[in-house]
C-alpha cells in the first residue's frame, strides 16, 4: 500500500494509544461519578462538564480513526474524501436539530409526553 513506509513499526505505538484511550475513558468516568462543582454550570446551552465529555470523546475518536484505522497513513486526498463529508455534515445536522429541539422544548407543554 502507498505510504506504508511511514508506518510506525513494532507494537509500542499500539499500546501507547491503548493507554491514551484508557486514561481518557477513566477521566470521563471519574468526572461522571464525582461531578466536580466547578464544571456544573451552564455554558452555551449545556453544562460545562458535557462540553468536557464531548471534547474528550472527539480526542478518542481522532486517535481511533487516525492510528487504529490507519487513516493518517493514507493519501492526503483519500483522507479528505472521508473527513470532509463527516466534518461538514455531522456538525451541521447536530446544530440545526439540537437548536430545533431546544425550541421545541421551550414551547412544548412538558407534561404531555408523546405529543
Amino acid at each position: 500500500m502507498a505510504d506504508h513506509a511511514e508506518h510506525p513499526t513494532g507494537t509500542r505505538w499500539i499500546w501507547n494509544i491503548f493507554w491514551l484511550l484508557l486514561i481518557v475513558t477513566a477521566v470521563e468516568v471519574g468526572l461522571g461519578i464525582v461531578k466536580p462543582a466547578f464544571l456544573m454550570n451552564k455554558v452555551a446551552g449545556t453544562l460545562l462538564i458535557n462540553h468536557v465529555f464531548i471534547i474528550l470523546t472527539l480526542v478518542k475518536a481522532y486517535y481511533i480513526v487516525m492510528y487504529y484505522m490507519h487513516l493518517k497513513y493514507e493519501r492526503k486526498n483519500f483522507i479528505w474524501t472521508i473527513a470532509l463529508p463527516a466534518l461538514i455534515l455531522i456538525p451541521y445536522l447536530t446544530f440545526i436539530i439540537l437548536v430545533e429541539g431546544g425550541y421545541m422544548g421551550s414551547i412544548t407543554l412538558q407534561s404531555i409526553p408523546g405529543n
Partner: peptide, 8 residues
C-alpha cells in the same frame, strides 16, 4: 438529542 431537549 432532539427529543431529549424537547422533553427535558
Amino acid at each position: 438529542g432532539l427529543y431529549r431537549f424537547k422533553f427535558e
